[in-house]
Amino acid sequence: MRIPRVFEPQPLSAGARIELGDTSIQHVVRALRMNDGDRICIFNGEGQECLAQLADVSKRSAWAILEQPATPAVESPLQIHVGQTLSRGERMDYAVQKATELGVSKITPLTSERCEVKLKGDREDKRLRHWQQVATSACEQSLRTRVPSIEEVSPLQTWIEQVDADLKLVLHHHTAQPLQSMDPPGSVALLIGPEGGLTEAEVDAALAAGFQPVAFGPRVMRTETAPVAACAILHYLWGDLG
């Protein structure tokens, strides 16, 4: 059986004994019914992972005795920051999950003129925590060792003016500019519009802020599909896919 991976945001050192958090206990103890002596893999979101042996397992608590930590080469050299306009239902979950599996470094949920999702106060905080957990779970599954951060919801205009990257791209199907003609970047900011698309004024604002328009083929993609295709292509060209 594959050794389960869990996320514990704390320092990892050989021989250390750490207490597992509630989410890890729910997974390895209550769901998988693991016991003392069983082995798990712990990663801390900062590039390290470590095999560990469970100890003092009960229904509500469990400890892990760490072996030698490792720093596997599983993170892409290309840093991608996705500005993802909010979408309804499970579409945002899908975009966060798949973008994480493909190696993005950061995701900022955006509001725009055609965005139909409105988040404020406690509801916004709850969704941000949920999306961060979606990203963490995707890292557990995909063997990543760094968890992308889910930033606070931002107006599109604010994000395009403040985001910093070597190359800034806005997905816009009315362009034929090839990515292969661009100089290889170390970091990319990727702007994804809502289901109804960005307005011409928003595209113009992005271009004025230094973004370059790019299309990934002749077909128009849904808002949750676009970051998946884009991140795969970017990592194939300049990252570690392929």
Results as ranks from 00 to 15, higher is better:
residue 149 S to D: 14
residue 152 E to L: 13
residue 178 P to M: 08
residue 45 G to R: 06
residue 214 V to I: 14
residue 92 M to G: 01
residue 55 A to N: 12
residue 202 E to F: 02
residue 199 T to H: 05
residue 195 E to C: 13
residue 7 F to A: 02
residue 240 D to Q: 11
residue 147 V to G: 12
residue 134 V to G: 06
residue 131 W to Q: 05
residue 170 V to M: 03
residue 77 P to E: 02
residue 138 A to M: 06
residue 101 E to F: 13
residue 94 Y to Q: 09
residue 122 D to L: 03
residue 137 S to A: 15
residue 27 H to S: 02
residue 153 V to I: 15
residue 72 P to H: 06
residue 119 L to F: 08
residue 203 V to H: 09
residue 150 I to F: 09
residue 95 A to I: 00
residue 124 E to R: 13
residue 112 S to Y: 08
residue 95 A to W: 05
residue 24 S to G: 13
residue 50 C to A: 04
residue 113 E to M: 10
residue 59 K to S: 15
residue 83 G to R: 08
residue 225 T to S: 15
residue 67 E to L: 08
residue 206 A to H: 06
residue 84 Q to Y: 01
residue 176 A to G: 13
residue 39 R to T: 12
residue 158 T to N: 12
residue 27 H to C: 07
residue 226 A to Y: 08
residue 165 A to T: 10
residue 84 Q to V: 05
residue 12 L to Q: 00
residue 27 H to M: 08
residue 210 G to S: 04
residue 81 H to W: 09
residue 160 I to V: 15
residue 2 R to T: 13
residue 141 Q to I: 15
residue 170 V to F: 05
residue 122 D to M: 06
residue 123 R to Y: 06
residue 111 T to Q: 09
residue 228 V to R: 00
residue 226 A to K: 11
residue 39 R to C: 11
residue 176 A to Y: 01
residue 132 Q to R: 13
residue 152 E to S: 14
residue 25 I to L: 13
residue 165 A to W: 03
residue 242 G to W: 02
residue 149 S to W: 00
residue 180 Q to W: 01
residue 9 P to S: 01
residue 140 E to N: 12
residue 67 E to Q: 14
residue 66 L to Y: 11
residue 199 T to I: 11
residue 105 S to G: 15
residue 85 T to I: 04
residue 226 A to D: 13
residue 23 T to D: 14
residue 198 L to I: 05
residue 57 V to N: 03
residue 19 E to W: 00
residue 153 V to D: 04
residue 241 L to A: 10
residue 22 D to Q: 14
residue 229 A to E: 02
residue 27 H to K: 12
residue 29 V to S: 02
residue 199 T to A: 10
residue 98 K to P: 09
residue 48 Q to F: 09
residue 223 T to G: 03
residue 16 A to Y: 00
residue 90 E to V: 01
residue 174 H to F: 08
residue 36 D to F: 00
residue 229 A to H: 10
residue 242 G to P: 06
residue 206 A to K: 09
residue 16 A to I: 00
residue 154 S to H: 10
residue 83 G to N: 06
residue 202 E to I: 09
residue 79 Q to H: 12
residue 237 L to D: 02
residue 220 V to M: 09
residue 202 E to A: 09
residue 153 V to T: 15
residue 222 R to M: 07
residue 67 E to D: 15
residue 180 Q to Y: 03
residue 25 I to T: 03
residue 152 E to Q: 15
residue 150 I to M: 07
residue 36 D to N: 15
